[in-house]
Amino acid sequence: MKKPSLIYRIIKVVILAGFAVVIVFPFYWIIITSLKETKEIFSVPISFFPRKFSLQNYRDLFQMLDFGRYILNSILVSIVAASGASVVSLCGGYVLARFNFRGKQIVIYFYLITQMLPSFIGLAPLYQMLSWAGMIDKLPSLMLLNATWLIPYSTITIRGYLMRVPRALEESAMIDGCNRIHALVRIVFPLILAGFSATFRFCFVQAWNDLFSPIMYMNRQINYTIPVALNYMVQKNDIRWGELSAGAVIAVVPTVIMFAFAQKYVAAGLIAGAVKE
């Protein structure tokens, strides 16, 4: 491959840097807000850098609310929901990608249509169903609900990635004696690692940011997740930006870690896959 020209590289750097600035600026704003004292947050003229550094907001956040607990809940719910959805979707996606059977189109539309259903229409029946089943105010309900809602997107997307993998690979493996599941896991899966990883990350953040379900289906504070705590800062006449920003900064950390380091992991998986070939 020819090495890209210098001009191209400069343009690329400029554009990438420009976008980074635009994307990051609101977060820069949140970070410095979290480090300002309440009185400085809205004082005019606006300060783009805290005049006086203060960690008071972080302290208040953990004192006022059981924020550590919420972090734990969020992590649990998101990991379980994303993992559960991904596994189920891998199974479903594989079958939808590889086989032809009556009703295949129906299944795909079955999943696709769920994305169009406005969630409010089913709120009361869903609430009453969960209530009847004793599932209100139990954390696993959140895991189950989030996993379910993620399955359609994951299945369709993973199917898309799977369809790009030639059948020949697993068919030759099966001739050599391993069963389908083995073939799927050992041979096919590593080849879609990049796509699977992207889908998993999306599922994770969807569950991570879900505000509506914890408010509706959980009662006690010990079952709340991070978005609920953040929403709590929106009060009747005011928004507690100091604590809200502190909470938002903390909320962003896992996602950033996941996305920054996922790349290395995915690359390693690809190399492993290539070696197998």
Partner: peptide
């Protein structure tokens, strides 16, 4: 990781 910031919150 940076590009994905907007998706990291509700």
């Amino acid at each position: 990781g940076v590009i994905f910031f907007p998706w990291a919150v509700s």
